[in-house]
Amino acid sequence: MERELKEREGLYSLLRALFSYPLTETVLGAVASLAPGPGSPMAPGLRQLQQRIREAVDGRALVEALNVEMTRLMEGPGRVPAPPFASFYLHGERLMGPAAVAARRFYLQWSAMPETEWRIPPDHIALELGFLAYLARRAAEATHDAERWRILQASREFLRRHVLPWLPRFCEALASSTTDPFFIGLAAFTHEAVRLDLEWLDAVLAEHSDSLPSDERTGRSS
């Protein structure tokens, strides 16, 4: 399990970096280094990402072009095609709705605060993915089993209640607003990664609860 937990942290850290402006050669290098197993649902998206990176002749020019496109898609100014905030999709195209407040509350319940503090709305995609990486690390470093399960349950709850209600729509907006395969691939990759992680968490937590005394089976963190 150790290995999977660390890989989860790596995956979410990578995803977080891919939605943090600006993209860097380091991050692109990390993407290029991944080897998708055949049949992995993440493979198609990842391959598009990697092909885009491979085709570029000049690394710096690629980074610049991707950042310009990222600005247009997600940063602004003015109306952007794919706003990266949960509230936009869940609360009538407005920001700082209940989803943002809920995300913030969740982070603080785990004594976590973004390094950018509260300047960015807490329901930004990079913050939500980064938080999953944070929880993944805590799960990997947990010294007691009970703690580890608690953290994994929290990760699942966060995915179910905070991320998945809006992520598919965001990914669709992203993919349909660009012709750049990097971002089309990123949308697919991210959607699949998150979906697969939830499947994994469901499976792992179900297995674990089968081995628990019955009164502990439905324990969820608040």
Binding site: S13, A30, L34, A112, E115, Y134
Partner: peptide
């Protein structure tokens, strides 16, 4: 993949 954790999660613990 695990090494990519070095990219950071962006949170601090209070």
């Amino acid at each position: 993949l695990a090494a990519m954790a070095a990219l950071g999660h962006g949170f601090k613990t209070l």
